[in-house]
Amino acid sequence: MGVIEAILLTIATAATPLLIAAIGELVVERSGVLNLGVEGMMIMGAVTGFGVALLTGSPWLGMLGGIVVGALFSLLFGFLTLTLVTNQVATGLALTLLGLGLSGMLGESFVGQPGIRLPNLHIPVLSDLPFVGGLIFGQDPIFYVSIALTAGVAWFLFYTHAGLTLRSVGDNHASAHALGINVIGIRYLAVMFGGACAGLAGAYLSVVYTPQWVENMTAGRGWIALALVVFASWRPWRVLAGAYLFGAVTIGQLHAQALGLGIPSQLLSSLPYLATVVVLVLISQNKRLTMVNTPASLGRPFVPDR
C-alpha cells in the first residue's frame, strides 16, 4: 500500500463519522430546528453500538442499535422543543449533558473489552487493484453508506416534493402552516433523522474507527459536525467537502509531526478550529449565498394558531 493511498484511507475514516452526523444535522436545520445535542446523541449511539455488537456478536446489529437509540434519544429533544416549545439551544445542551452522563453509566461494564469490528469490503480483483483498489473498493461498509447518504439527502432536498416541503417549513413555518403543511410533524421526522444519523456516527466510532468503548470517546466530534453544517452553508455536497477537509487537516498535522518539522503541536491542533472560523466568516460575508441557503426560521419556535 502506497503512502498516499494509506493517508487518503486514514482521512476517509476520520471524515466519515463527521460527515454522517453533519448530514443528519443538516436535514434538521433545513427544517428550521437547531439541535445542539449532536454530541450527546453520538455518544449514546457509540455506547449502544458497542454494547449491542458485543452482546449479540454482530457488528451490523450494533450499527442498527446505534441508529435506533440515536433516533429515540432525539425524540426527547423533539418533545421538548417542538411540543413544549422550549428554547432549542438550551435543550440541545441538556441533551448533550444527559447523553455524556447516561452513556458513562450504561457503558461501565464495557470498559476494557475489545469490541467487534465491522470488516472492510473486499471484492476479489477489484479491491486489489493498485492505488484505487483500496480506496474505491476496499473500505468499511459505512464509508459507502456515508457517501450514499450525502447523495440521497442532496437528491431528496432539491429534487423531490417532500424535500421542497421540508425546506419550506424551515424557510417560513407560518406560511407553510397556512398552506396546510403539518409543520410540527415534519420537524419531528427531521429531528429523528438527525438523531439516527448521529447515532450511526457514534456507533461508527465504537465499532469501526476504534472498536472499544471508553467514556467521552466522541471527544467533541459532535460539535465539529455542527460547525460543518454552517461551514457548508447547508449544502450536502459541501458538507462532504468540509468533512474531508477537516479530516485532512487533522491527519496532516500528525504527519507534519512524524516528519519532525518541529512546529508547536498546539498550533497545529488549533488549525482546524481556526480554519472553521475563517471559512464561516468567508461564507457569511457573501450575503447572496447566505440568503439563498440559510433556513430563515432556524431556531425559531413554532406554535400553530388555532
Binding site: 428554547n87 435543550t91 448533550t96 449533558l97 452522563g101 447516561l102 453509566m105
Partner: peptide, 22 residues
C-alpha cells in the same frame, strides 16, 4: 455512586426546568 451520575443528573434537571417553563 459513580461520578457519571452527576452529569446525568444535571442534564435531567435542565430538561425539567425547560419543560416547566412552558
Amino acid at each position: 455512586v459513580s461520578d457519571k451520575v452527576v452529569r446525568a443528573f444535571q442534564g435531567m434537571l435542565l430538561f425539567f426546568v425547560l419543560a416547566c417553563d412552558t
